[in-house]
Nucleic acid binder design. Structure first.
Lengths: 334, 334
DNA sequence: TTGAAAGCGATACCAC
DNA sequence: GTGGTATCGCTTTCAA
């Protein structure tokens, strides 16, 4: 219950407090005999160095702030899981902020900055230029994950969402579909906007008549996909190819279609985005754009370590990855 | 880039450093005029109090350590999401450790303790008595989530897993099934052991012949459920009622059964455990035991705040909740 | 109210 | 190698 500090250990071991500190520092210079005595005393007292006090002087907390929109969403839960493991291997700890899907990171960043995090990783949401400037001024590197935003001093790791939309459009076109639909994610999110733009632009470029392209509003969730598909499929001009801004919505579409008696992919082609693990499930066999999670993570870790070292070459740069089309059985081919 | 401390603010505002500190303390006693001047100076310099330095003296970090096994698993992702939001509302920050499903919390706790977390929440895994004692000695409250372990000084919030197993057995029995199977989660986990025990005991108590009860080993994942079901259903003595230690395995079972041409629930009844959001999906309509997430969270937060206040009445106590049977369409009734 | 000064628990530079 | 001491940025008496 009573706190034990390096002074207590020093007293018990009969050495100076400095020596105790040295034993717990990576490049110690302590005689083997003293070191033993100190470690023994530490063990007896249950002593643990206080990293907060250490941070105060070293100016480094080994804390990485992660702000993430909707940890519970399938894709980001996987992302967080992998990322936090890798950070742990680097000796970094994660301090986590979960914000709403529609929220910005601005609200929570001040708190994170108060904890003097060594760096910030912001996923699935963005921050204002002002806040970016504030982080920069404090010398806190910011890495944006999955937002294509060009901000002074911040690094961005992102998949090419627009290209992903085009890839799906191409797949639909090559396999001769007639009427298309897009089910949107939360409208204000950039991810949604770019996926939609790529898909729509490609269809229009190829000469598809604009009124052969339908659109429904969703919110990335299964339920919203289910509802949107139900509306689309009960109308006279029902589509035979639906692209969803996220995999969960696509699952909803598949289920809704089957509930109405349609067969996938014979009557209806469905494609999603992200390639969450469920996309492989036997019922769905969903064609989708895979986020290359491993590459994205590697890039994130690389940029992070470089910026922590003070290397700023990745600053104000967007690192864009191409999504990989995963063709499964939810899209009619030929 | 250059750090700014309360001293800088004090200098600019022409006051003492103490006064600056007071302005940023909850129960300040500063004249309105001075306060304004200080706030203005702080704004100009971009000053933010350093919570680490504060923690050093207040002996409270407002950090809550959460260690969780497999953040990416459906149930725990939801748990983490809700929990972190609630903690944020309390002004607490989350420092997160993601460990492997088969790992213990012991390995990572020392690090967490070095950060002087105010409390620890350990989910889906357990810790040794020694480590529990160490936390207690340091005065760090420990709350175990979803492990029924009686440890000195630690509080536990848990669902009654054994009872859940019995509930499913009862449901199967009441609706006249003939041959039963249990698909296990990772064998070493307590959750799996208790769910299995409840299910098996109830079946045997009711006079079911032991060789009418099959068992397959899984690992909580969809794939393992799919594989186990494929084995079970291709054998001569195939079961007509399968209970899975987790929902994802149950989804795998449903898909495997359908792939083999069986109809759910006419040919086969399937039940899971946890009631993850996907259990409601139209394809699955999974009968399962719901973890009362809201109640569990409330209890967790309550115990946490009590223990932070120094109230120790919940120490060494297991708070057991009853899981709620959710009957959907994956089990044949009558 | 306000300012001076002690201390929280470490690191790092200094002689020795 | 070792110990003494200043310092990190704050909170908290204690006088004034």
């Amino acid at each position: 219950m009573k706190r034990v500090s390096s002074v207590d250990v020093a007293k018990l071991a009969g050495v100076s407090q400095s020596s105790v500190s040295r034993v717990f520092s990576p490049n110690a210079k302590v005689s083997a005999e003293k070191r033993e005595r100190i470690l023994e005393a530490a063990r007896q007292l249950g002593y643990k160095p206080n990293v907060l006090a250490r941070s105060l002087i070293t100016q480094s907390t080994n804390l990485i702030g992660i702000v993430i929109a909707d940890v519970a969403s399938l894709f980001y839960a996987n992302f967080l899981s992998a990322l936090s493991s890798q950070l742990r291997d680097l000796g970094k700890q994660v301090i986590l902020f979960n914000v709403g899907l529609d929220q910005t990171a601005d609200d929570v960043l001040p708190t994170l900055l108060e904890y003097r995090v060594d760096a910030l990783i912001i996923a699935a949401t963005t921050l204002s230029a002002d806040m970016a400037a504030e982080c920069a001024q404090q010398g806190t590197p910011v890495i944006l994950f999955n937002r294509e935003v060009e901000l002074d001093q911040v690094s961005a790791i992102c998949i090419d969402n627009e290209d992903g939309g085009r890839q799906i459009a191409n797949l639909f076109l090559e396999n001769q579909h007639r009427r298309y639909a897009y089910i949107a994610g939360i409208e204000s999110t950039q991810t949604n906007q770019l996926r939609e733009k790529g898909f729509m632009d490609r269809l229009l470029e190829s000469g598809i008549d604009a009124n052969m392209i339908l659109r429904e509003q969703g919110d990335y969730s299964y339920d919203s996909g289910f509802a949107a598909a139900t509306r689309l499929l009960q109308a006279d001009n029902r589509p035979d190819a639906i692209f969803c801004a996220s995999d969960p919505m696509a699952f909803g579409v598949v289920d809704a279609a089957r509930a109405l008696g349609f067969s996938i992919p014979n009557d209806l082609s469905v494609a999603g985005f992200d390639n969450v693990p469920q996309a492989e499930w036997h019922t769905y066999q969903l064609t989708t754009i895979a986020q290359p999670l491993d590459s994205l993570l590697d890039a994130t870790i690389n940029v992070l370590t470089e910026r922590l070292k003070g290397n700023e070459s990745s600053k104000s740069k967007i690192d864009l990855f191409v999504g990989e089309l995963r063709i499964r059985n939810s899209v009619r081919l030929k």
